[in-house]
Design a protein around this nucleic acid. Structure first.
Lengths: 214, 214
DNA sequence: GTCTATACAACGATAGAC
DNA sequence: GTCTATCGTTGTATAGAC
């Protein structure tokens, strides 16, 4: 057995030893299917990545049926984002900031990140950066999250040419802003007003989104 | 001078020491101890971060007494900064990249960071980011290091107006590039050629250096 | 009784073996 | 080409909580 799933409390081999609770119907109170799926998903996604992990395997590790993924999360995508345990809902934020003039999207993106991160005091961001810098598995999950959500559903809608390069470039500026303002706390950027930061940063994001890349 | 093999500071000498030629005390084999401590410190800080690494453990790995850390570096903090400064000598790099057309300085800076970080495989950068995100003291040291070297001796010479803001903005783009390319390893930026990365990133750095900020 | 969490079967798509 | 295995997903019947 692989080392990751070996740490899981309930091994996924119920078939022969004991019939167990493979019955239909609502499970007796105490067995939390949703949490079991989340825990199994974190282990599987971390070990095998998004593509390598399978819904069936996750459900097997969790000891439930694969259909429970759809029932509780809506699909593999949603289970993946849920397993990241992000403090905010990226889908909602995307829907909030996407409509409007595409030539001012850089402003809205920069302002949104400032608002979100300032509101949380930068703590979750620092924790995320630390986790990503410490665990390669976390880095891969974050990378695949950015590719899947930010790229496919966001940059692609605005920048048809070279969308992945544009998405990565946007990530450099946004992540770098977070590093300097909340991790390094380098002045005067750490204490600057949102408007001033947006005025300086947003043109860069805008160029990465819709401008010339060289 | 080779900027990569940094000029190492000499061991501390008594304040009333005569000019350079005079040697006090024993010297045999001292440099080996210092190098061993640096190598062990790099490994320990990279693996456990600033807080997790211990002076005793570093000295043990180096095969010397823990008091040698104080003797050669002055303490754990100084040893940490020394282990960070080791892969690149900022003074030499500054002298190497500063002369030339100021309007193409962004290109030279971006290319320099790419060359330095790629040469090291990104390892020291990842270790630095991890330590900075883990330990506030490490963030403070790095912040003061950036302020002192990058700001006072570099940006100030090129951008007289709002030099600290320009320095912080440059840091966002350079650090963000490092995060995406070496920590997150987000494609296509993680595998892109230097020329392509410079073409996309350098205009941003150039604007932060000499362009309008809003 | 209603509601719903659950298990099972099956579907279309896809990738690889032969 | 066909065959097979496996993927994500959907429909549906049912057992248990309410």
């Amino acid at each position: 057995m692989d080392p990751v799933s070996a740490t899981r409390p309930s091994p996924p081999e119920p078939a022969d030893a004991a019939p167990r609770g493979r019955r239909r119907g609502r499970r007796a109170g105490g067995a939390d299917t949703r949490d079991a799926l989340l825990a199994a998903a974190r282990a599987e996604f971390a070990e095998r990545g998004y593509e390598g992990a399978t819904v069936r395997r996750i459900a097997e590790v969790a000891g439930v049926d694969a259909a429970m993924v759809n029932h509780w999360f809506g699909g593999k995508d949603a289970l993946f984002t849920a397993s990241l345990d992000l403090p905010l809902d990226p889908e909602a934020l995307l829907a909030l900031v996407l409509p409007g003039d595409p030539e001012r999207l850089g402003e809205r993106i920069t302002a949104m990140f400032l608002q979100v991160w300032d509101g949380a005091g930068g703590g979750p961001l620092v924790a995320m950066i630390r986790s990503v810098a410490t665990h390669p598995d976390a880095a891969r999950m974050m990378r695949e999250f950015v590719s899947r959500v930010i790229l496919d559903r966001f940059v692609g809608a605005v920048a048809p040419d070279r969308p992945d390069e544009r998405a990565a470039l946007c990530a450099t500026q946004i992540l770098g802003l977070g590093m300097v303002r909340y991790v390094l706390r380098l002045e005067p950027l750490a204490s600057a007003e949102h408007a001033e930061v947006v005025a300086a940063i947003a043109p860069t994001v805008q160029r990465y989104l819709t401008g010339p890349l060289d």
